[in-house]
Every structure is written in structure tokens, then in C-alpha cells.
Design a protein around this nucleic acid. Structure first.
Length: 982
RNA sequence: GCAGGGGUUCCCGAGUGGUCAAAGGGGGCGGACUCAAGAUCCGCUGUCAAGCGCUUCGCAGGUUCGAAUCCUGCCCCCUGCACCA
């Protein structure tokens, strides 16, 4: 069979007609994508329809989508835009899927910035905060986020913080509140104490000012009671690995033993905590933190006192930060006394060491220089004996290497029966058992986690609801007197420090609820992390004014936790740990039945933008100095992607971008720029190209809506593609792989539509069906455009109120319909790739393509091999035998070709496996179909191929049935025809 | 030091044993349309002698018929914690 075609096929003409109409007869109004008008219109429509309000409905499956609520600092930044674009897309997607979606928003509005701002401008933090909230709210609305605004809350509103106080009283009843005098972290510049979690490198987490220790009466929440549960439950929640690691690290549970070392000639005992009781026989000295109370007792009045005092003073004088920096230099002083190893009775010297931390464990360390590198260094410096009591190799004596062997090993040299030869946990257990028997110690667990210090000496926070009475002590404010409100008649002035609450007589002076005498209110307020530790529960029932939330609401919306929680990694320890603790404590208070607040956490990556960078100094600079040499070394500055920040000046204003491109484009850019957890780089050209993409989508949709073609050649294919796309899209969206989802909905769907037009067009009815599938896919990421087009398509119900069937779609014929088109694309692709070669080998211009499909016998062998493969035929064992029975194998002239082809079919060569293993569903469908014939298919599409390749004709026949152009007959395979140019 | 995550083509970034010279996007280049610009569309974007060629997924080895993918060692980057006993 030979086909020659110089005329475009029917389909091709069809496309020209459609194309023609679109570009010339359509009105200008319809062709313009006008995001401002569309977005305003639909935001109003959603609002009018209360489309995003959701209530408890036990008959429906819920989906609680939550973002870390913002601190209202005035304006929304790109980090917010990213965070909330992700959340909004997921909320909208889940609504489409039929879930009852709770998607609320609020403001974490207590805190120091408002207080400082009020001081600066001479107002009240309340006013500063509320005007900032107005600003953020309007930005959020401009982005079109689909919150249930009825549930909006602000933690600085007494309708919220009264429940902070209520819960605090509850915790007090439960014994979780404690007021005690303790050394606390004090930040001079913030004028308040800080929780442990808020101190990094001995600097304040907010202002980076140095933190110093101070003894004060403070309020604590006993979070340590929940340490084990907080740690163990990490295994059952879907948090990113690094977040889990940070929390584990922070809780810092270590198993070990407290071991008692009696002091010689004294009744005192040194209790040392160790994680390595198995090394007890290697103890050659004991080290105390200089602050340890025993030091003073032991050394007083001895010749060693002066040295000790020097060390202790040095440690006390240095901040902990400096101390860590100085600690390369391990220092210790002998205290003149000895302690006894409780198992061996050996006397070992007692030292004070600057590297022992008073606040961890017991502040005393048993030193084993043979198996701890720090102790090893110390022992060498002060010429203390080093004993090896663990062997690296079973049954052998320990090696002496000049370094400590810190791994687990087999016990040796214990000098007591029953220990040598024990390994690891067994060794530890044996030592603990012996200690317990002697009453000289016990197995124990240490935590790094401390109780949460939550009082702050600041104004703009929740007042701690307690009253100090001369005779009754510190007693709680009765529940009916809540809330204890912050006074509004407070004047903030610049330069004034301290807590204005303390000087506010109306607030401070009250009567004791118990005895009625005059009394003073507590003026400390709560850490703002307290506010955010349960706001997700309040959202479940935000309008309740008789309890923080009803049990029914909490149990419905919070069942299994918030389904998707999105926010920044900076809260990995503090907020997320506190919130987990709160949830468990409130569960134990009987307020709900939930154990973990967040079942899945997604930490969105940074939004970066270029900043000047000196590679030499490894420093990023403010964008202002772009183009100048490095201020430090004078080298030419390069550029590097860096987190958007005020200090670098590389921020991009969301408002300006929305104004320029519209909210949908900004959303698309954010979602397409990177998957949620990856960092993304801001790029002006990228957002521009995303805007072009929005226009391309818009015009494709308009074209589809106006399409009135009666019969379309690409109907089947386009609909098959849409089913395939639907399935992949649903999977990606369900997994929060938004980038991949958007790639399908906003890129591949357009490409397919355009391909269908080029290939002959689609009918009006198929086009509408395609749009009916496509437009809802556009909705989660770019809801405004989707609603507009959905309506234009004639739908009366908004997408915001539409539920789709998202179960997989598939027609039996899809594989073959899709496979054919793939085949065509591949043929064209291969033709292009050999074109250049052909041009070099041919004189004159190329005007035709010659295609030879595989010989008959190849197709027969291929389908037999596929069949045999399905039946698990052993090709290694029986392949050759089978081949010999084949007719094509008898012909001596083609025997070699048959062998070679068979190999390509069932074995493969080099890195490529045999075709029977690599053919996919579509290829297999084509090969086994009686309807698909390569020669027929190519000749039917010869016009398209010719016009696409820009040539005059395409000829096609089965190898052997025509001239063997360029010897391509031999190389042709089923679905991979030989292609030559002429 | 410990823990977690990384290193892929000009850039960003997908890819966790064979259909991989490696998706997609950005950028660049070329072309079509146009008086022109923008927009839009099409193509190219490791290499050559054009082949089921050669080289390439941080470096060096190993496992395998076959490695970007698995294993071992090393180097580098990011994040967090840090004389935590």
C-alpha cells in the first residue's frame, strides 16, 4: 500500500477554519483576560452566598484545613501569600471532593511589637493591633481566600483571652500550674523573662539580646508530665522528619542511671547521672558543676578553696554563651576530697569542671576517660589514670589507642564476677541491677525538656488570673469574675520601661475573693505562645460564649487532628510542642477526646529572591549596594538567592504583584514555583510567564465555549486525555503535591486542547465535556477565573458550591486512543531527529518522508512473545527452541534478522530491556488491537504529518512491500517504523 | 560533635533498579505571524563520525546482565541541637 498526500486532510482544514474564526470574528471584550473585574465579581458572589461557611454535620466527612495564623504586623508578605495559597487550594479541592471543610482564619495579636509600636507613637497597643488586623484582612480578601469569616478571632480580644484564663484555672485545678522561684532567663532589652524554648545560644529569640540568669518567682506549666507521651506519639503523626527530629531532640529523653558515689570521710553522697552505667568500672574521677552545692562544702577551708573560687567566679562571670565559646579550654580544679566507686570501693578524686552543666541531670558526672572523649582530654591534662573497661571485639582485651572508645562494647577488666563479656544493654542492665541491690543507685530517665515558664512581665498579653492576698496567699480569680481584662486607659510613652500594668492602680488593687481584704492582682501576663496553643480548638466553635468550645464541635472537627496544618518551620519546636501539650492536657481535663492536634503538618519552604553576595566573604548584602564592590574585601559582588527579608531589602510586595497581575496569577506562580515544602525563588520573568499562561488558559477556554463545530476528529482522544489527566490530578492534589497538580490543570490541559485543535479540532459537544472536566480542575489554584468560565459555560451553580465525583475515570478504549496519538507524536519526533542527518546526505531539498513499518513476521513474533510473557514463559530456557519452530526462522536470508529481533524483543541489549518488558499499557493495547494498523494509521494522518514537517508528501508501506529506502526496513520494529527522508 | 535534609543538565526542579540524554518550567537561540513592538504559536538547547554511538545526575569504589536510583567510604551545602554525661 502506498499513500501519497499533498493536500491537508479534512481535519487539518477544519482546524484552519476554527482558527480563523477565533482570531477574527470574536469580540474584543471576550478575548481580554481582566483579572481585576473577574476577581472582584466572584469574591462578592462567594461572600453573598456565604459559600465557605461550614457547620458540624455528623453525616458528612470533615476536613479541617488550617494555616498558622498571622501575627498582624500590618501587611501581608510573600510568606503569608505562599502559606495561605497552599491552604486555600487544599480547602477548595477538598470541598470539590465533597468534604465538609473547616477553613478558618484569625490573628495571633498579642505580643511585643504592638506594645513597642504604641510606645513609639504614643498610643495603645489595642489600637495599633486593630488597625493592623484591618490591613491584613483586606489583603487576605483580595487574594480570594475561602475562609469561614464567622469564625474569625483575635487572641487579644477578651472574648478569646477570657478562655485563656479559664483554661489556666482548669490547669491549676489539675495541678499543672506551679508558681515557684527559680533561676530564669531574663532579657534586658525585652524587659521580661523567656521560656527555655525562646533562648537560642543564650540570646533572646526575638531581639537577639543577651539573656542572663535571674532568680524570680514565676509561673510554670508542668509540661514535663507529658514528656513521654509527647515523645512517643511523634511516631504516629505525619510531620516532616526534621520537625520530628527537632522535637525528639528537644524533649531529649535519655535512659541511664543515677549512681551514688559516697564521699570519703563525709555523710554526703554525690549523685551522678549517666547514660553509660556499663562503663562504671572505668571511673577514675568525679566531676561536679562549679555551681553544685557540694563543691562549697567540700572545699571550704582547705588549701584548694582559692583555686575553686577562681574557677567558680570565672564561670559565674561569663555568660553561658561565652562559656561555651571558651569551653574549647576544659578546666577543672581538684577539690581535695575523694569519692568511692559504689561497686568496687575504689577511691577516686573529686573535681569541679567548667564543662559540667548544673541544670542537666544532677550536675555531677562520673568521669570515664577510657570511654568518653571529654573525660579523656581532662584526664590527660590533669594526669589522671585512664582505664579501658569495654572491648571493641568480643573476647579480646580492650585496645589502648590514645582516644576514648565511645561505642558500645563488651565489658572487661571489671574485677568483679558476672560482668566481663556482657554487651550493650545487657551490660547496662547488669550494672543497674547491682547498684539497686546495694542501694547505691537506680535506673532512671532524664529529660532535657523543662517545665514551660509562661509568665511575662509585659502588658500586651493575657493577664494571669490570680490575686495576691496578705493572709490567703496567691489565689485564683473565681471563674465568674473572668475575664480579667486589660485596661484601655494606659498611656504608653517612649523611653518608659517595665510593665505599665504594675503601676495601674485600678487594675492592681482589688479584694481577696476569699477573705475580702484588700489585695493585689498578679500583673504578669502570659507568654503569647499560650494563646496559639489552643486556637485551633476555639475555631471549632468560635462563637461559643459559655465555654471555650463545645465537646461536640471539638470532637467532630478535631477527630484525628487537624487534617492539614500548614506553616513555617520556625515553629517546629515551640508552637508545635506547646500545642501538642495543650491538646493532651485539655483532653485530660475532659474537654474533648483528641490526643494529637495535627495529623499532618506541611512546612512550606522559604520564598527567596536575589540579593548581592560576596563569594569570598560568604556574606549577603542589602540590594542597595548592588553594583558596588564588596564593602569588606572589595571583590566584585555576585548574586545569590536569599530569603526575602527587610534586612536584605529583597522583598517583593504581594500588593503590587496582585495589582499588576491579579490574585489568580500570583496564586498560580506561588503554587507552580515549587512544591509546598521546597524553597522557591522569586523571579519577575517567571511570574510574567505565569500571567501569559493564565491568558493562554483564558483564550483556550473562550475558544472552547464559542466552538460550534459539528463533528470533531479529536473528540475521543481529547476526552480520553481528560480522564487520564483527571486521575493524575486527583492523586497529586490529594497528596498536597500542588505543583504537580497545577502542572496538569494549568499546563498540560492547555497543551492537550491546543494539540486537539491542531489535529483537526473537537466538536462542540466534546469540547463542552472537556471544559466541564477542566474548569473545576482550575478552581483550587485559580478560583476566580474558574468561576467566571464555569458560569460562561452555562452552569448555574458556583464551583464554590459544587461537589464533583473524583473517583477514577477510565474508558476501555482509552489506552488505544491515547496510544495512537502517542504513536503519531513519536513518528513525527523521530522524523525530525533524523532530518538533519538526512539533509547532509542528500542534495537538494527534502520534500518527502518514507516510512516503513515492521515486517509481517515481526508483528507476529511480537504478539506471540507478549502472550508468552503473560503466561510466564521462561525465555532463557525455551526461547531458542520456540524460535526454531517459527516459519520466519526457516528462511536463511532473514534468519539473522529474526535472531536479532527476537533478542530485542525478549532480552534487550546493554541498558535496555527487551520490548516485552518495556511496552506500556498503551503500546500493548495497540499491538493487540485488531483495529490498529500502523500503515493505515499513518496514511490517514499523512496530511498532518506532511504539514507539521513542512514537506509535500508522506509515503508509507510495510517493510518488504516497497523500495527499501536508506536500508530502514531491517531496523523497523513494531511501533517503531523506519523513517527516511527524500 | 550529634541529629535531620540535601548535592541531577545554563538555572530552578521532577525522577528511588531497565520505557532515562533524564518530566516540567525559567532563561537562551532560531523560526512563523507582523510595518514594528507586544502577545501568540512552532522548533532547538550534552557531544560527535548520527549509532539501539559516546559522555553526563557531588567524588571514589562496589553490587548487578543493567545504576541518577541500591551498598561502602569520602567531600561539600542547608537546618536544628550542642561539653546533655
Amino acid at each position: 500500500m502506498r499513500v501519497s498526500s499533498a493536500v491537508p486532510s479534512i481535519g487539518f482544514l477544519n482546524w484552519l477554519i476554527v482558527h480563523h474564526r477565533c482570531t477574527h470574528t470574536r469580540g474584543q471584550v471576550m478575548t481580554n483576560y481582566d483579572p481585576d473585574a473577574i476577581e472582584a465579581r466572584w469574591q462578592a458572589a462567594w461572600n453573598d452566598a456565604s459559600a465557605f461557611e461550614s457547620d458540624v454535620d455528623l453525616s458528612r466527612q470533615k476536613f479541617y484545613c488550617l494555616e498558622m495564623f498571622p501575627y498582624p504586623s500590618g501587611q501581608m508578605h510573600m510568606g503569608h501569600v505562599r502559606n495561605y495559597s497552599i491552604g486555600d487550594s487544599m480547602a477548595r479541592f477538598r470541598r470539590l471532593a465533597g468534604f465538609n471543610v473547616l477553613y478558618p482564619m484569625g490573628y495571633d495579636s498579642f505580643g511585643m511589637p504592638a506594645e513597642n509600636a504604641a510606645r513609639r507613637i504614643g498610643g495603645h497597643p489595642h489600637d495599633v493591633t486593630w488597625s493592623n488586623i484591618e490591613g491584613i484582612r483586606s489583603d487576605l480578601n483580595r487574594m480570594g481566600f475561602s475562609y469561614d469569616w464567622r469564625r474569625e478571632l483575635a487572641t487579644s480580644d477578651s472574648s478569646y483571652y477570657r478562655w485563656n484564663q479559664w483554661i489556666f484555672l482548669k490547669f491549676h485545678e489539675m495541678g499543672l500550674v506551679e508558681r515557684r522561684t527559680a533561676p530564669v532567663n531574663w532579657c534586658d532589652s525585652c524587659d521580661t523573662v523567656l521560656a527555655n524554648e525562646q533562648v537560642k545560644n543564650n540570646r533572646c529569640w526575638r531581639c537577639a539580646g543577651e539573656v542572663r540568669q535571674k532568680d524570680m518567682a514565676q509561673w510554670f506549666l508542668k509540661m514535663t508530665k507529658y514528656a513521654d507521651e509527647l515523645l512517643d506519639e511523634l511516631d504516629h503523626i505525619e510531620f516532616p522528619e526534621n520537625v520530628k527530629a527537632m522535637q525528639r531532640n528537644w524533649i531529649g529523653r535519655s535512659h541511664g542511671a543515677d549512681i551514688h558515689f559516697p564521699i570519703v570521710d563525709s555523710d554526703d553522697v554525690i549523685k551522678a547521672f549517666t547514660t553509660r552505667p556499663d562503663t562504671i568500672f572505668g571511673v577514675t574521677f568525679v566531676t561536679l558543676a562549679p555551681e553544685h552545692t557540694l563543691c562549697e562544702n567540700l572545699v571550704a577551708g582547705t588549701e584548694f578553696e582559692e583555686n575553686y573560687r577562681k574557677l567558680a567566679d570565672e564561670c559565674a562571670r561569663l555568660s553561658e554563651f561565652d562559656r561555651i565559646n571558651m569551653l574549647r579550654d576544659k578546666k577543672g580544679v581538684f577539690l581535695g576530697r575523694y569519692a568511692t566507686n559504689p561497686l568496687t570501693g575504689t577511691k577516686v578524686p573529686i573535681y569541679a569542671g567548667n564543662f559540667v552543666v548544673a541544670s542537666y541531670g544532677t550536675g555531677a558526672v562520673m568521669a570515664v576517660p577510657g570511654h568518653d572523649q571529654r573525660d579523656h582530654d581532662f584526664a590527660k591534662k590533669y594526669e589522671i589514670p585512664i582505664l579501658q573497661v569495654l572491648s571493641e571485639d568480643e573476647g579480646k582485651d580492650p585496645k589502648v589507642t590514645g582516644r576514648a572508645f565511645e561505642g558500645l562494647g563488651w565489658m572487661a577488666n571489671s574485677g568483679l564476677p558476672g560482668f566481663d563479656g556482657l554487651y550493650g544493654d545487657n551490660a547496662k542492665a547488669a550494672v543497674i541491677e547491682a547498684l539497686e541491690k546495694e542501694g547505691m543507685g537506680a535506673g532512671t530517665i532524664q529529660y532535657r525538656l523543662k517545665d514551660w515558664l509562661l509568665s511575662r512581665q509585659r502588658f500586651w498579653g493575657t493577664p494571669i488570673p490570680f490575686i495576691h492576698c496578705q493572709s490567703c496567699g496567691v489565689i485564683p480569680v473565681p471563674e465568674e469574675d473572668l475575664p480579667v481584662e486589660l485596661p484601655l486607659d494606659v498611656v504608653f510613652t517612649e523611653g518608659e520601661s517595665g510593665n505599665p500594668l504594675a503601676n495601674h492602680h485600678g487594675f492592681v488593687n482589688t479584694n481577696c475573693p476569699s477573705c475580702g481584704a484588700t489585695a493585689k492582682r498578679e500583673t504578669d501576663t502570659m507568654d503569647t505562645f499560650y494563646d496559639s496553643s489552643w486556637y485551633f480548638l476555639r475555631f471549632a466553635d468560635a462563637l461559643n460564649d459559655s465555654t471555650p468550645f463545645s465537646k461536640e464541635s471539638a470532637d467532630y472537627w478535631m477527630e484525628g487532628g487537624v487534617d492539614l496544618y500548614i506553616g513555617g518551620i520556625e515553629h517546629a519546636v515551640m508552637h508545635l510542642l506547646y500545642a501538642r501539650f495543650f491538646t493532651k492536657a485539655l483532653r485530660d481535663a475532659g474537654l474533648h477526646n483528641v490526643s494529637e492536634p495535627f495529623s499532618r503538618l506541611v512546612c512550606q519552604g522559604m520564598v527567596n529572591a536575589p540579593a548581592p553576595f560576596c563569594a569570598e566573604c560568604n556574606v549577603e548584602y542589602h540590594v542597595d549596594i548592588e553594583g558596588t564592590p564588596c564593602p569588606t574585601c572589595g571583590n566584585t559582588l555576585g548574586s545569590r538567592s536569599a530569603k526575602m527579608s527587610k534586612s536584605l531589602g529583597n522583598t517583593v510586595s504581594p500588593e503590587i504583584m496582585i495589582e499588576k497581575y491579579g490574585a489568580d496569577t500570583v496564586r498560580l506562580f506561588i503554587l507552580f514555583g515549587a512544591n509546598p515544602e521546597a524553597g522557591m525563588d522569586w523571579s519577575d520573568s517567571a511570574i510574567d510567564s505565569n500571567h501569559r499562561q493564565m491568558r493562554a488558559i483564558h483564550s483556550a477556554l473562550i475558544q472552547g465555549i464559542e466552538n460550534d463545530v459539528g463533528v470533531g476528529t479529536m473528540d475521543e482522544w481529547l476526552l480520553a486525555r481528560s480522564r487520564q489527566a483527571h486521575n493524575n490530578w486527583t492523586d497529586n492534589m490529594s497528596n498536597v503535591s500542588l505543583r504537580d497538580g497545577v502542572m496538569i490543570s494549568h499546563f498540560e490541559m492547555v497543551t492537550d486542547w491546543q494539540w486537539a485543535q491542531r489535529r483537526g479540532g473537537v466538536s462542540a459537544s466534546a469540547g463542552r465535556e472537556y471544559l466541564n472536566h477542566w474548569i473545576p480542575m482550575l478552581y483550587p489554584a485559580t478560583p476566580h477565573l474558574a468561576e467566571e468560565m464555569w458560569e460562561m459555560l452555562g452552569n448555574k451553580t458556583m464551583l464554590a458550591q459544587t461537589i464533583l465525583n473524583l473517583s477514577p475515570r477510565q474508558n476501555d478504549s482509552d489506552a488505544i486512543v491515547l496510544g495512537q496519538e502517542e504513536y503519531l507524536k513519536r513518528v513525527i519526533d523521530r522524523a525530525r531527529s533524523v532530518r538533519e542527518l538526512a539533509e547532509r546526505h542528500t542534495e537538494g531539498t527534502l520534500s518527502a518522508v518514507n516510512i516503513q513499518t515492521a515486517n509481517d513476521w515481526k508483528e507476529i513474533l511480537a504478539s506471540q512473545a507478549i502472550q508468552m510473557h503473560n503466561d510466564d514463559f521462561d525465555f532463557k530456557a525455551g526461547g531458542n527452541k520456540f524460535l526454531q519452530t517459527q516459519k520466519c526462522f526457516q528462511d536463511e536470508s532473514t534468519k539473522g534478522d529474526v535472531m536479532q529481533f527476537w533478542r530485542a524483543l525478549v532480552v534487550g541489549q546493554k541498558k535496555r530491556r527487551g520490548r516485552i518488558y518495556t511496552w506500556g499499557e498503551q503500546e500493548l493495547a495497540l499491538l493487540s488491537s485488531s483495529e490498529f494498523d500502523e500503515v493505515d494509521f499513518i496514511s490517514n494522518n499523512a496530511g498532518f504529518i506532511a504539514s507539521t514537517l513542512g514537506i509535500e508528501s508522506v509515503e508509507v508501506y510495510r517493510a518488504g512491500e516497497g523500495e527499501d529506502v536508506a536500508g530502514k526496513a531491517r531496523t523497523s520494529l513494531p511501533l517503531e517504523p523506519g523513517i527516511a527522508w527524500r
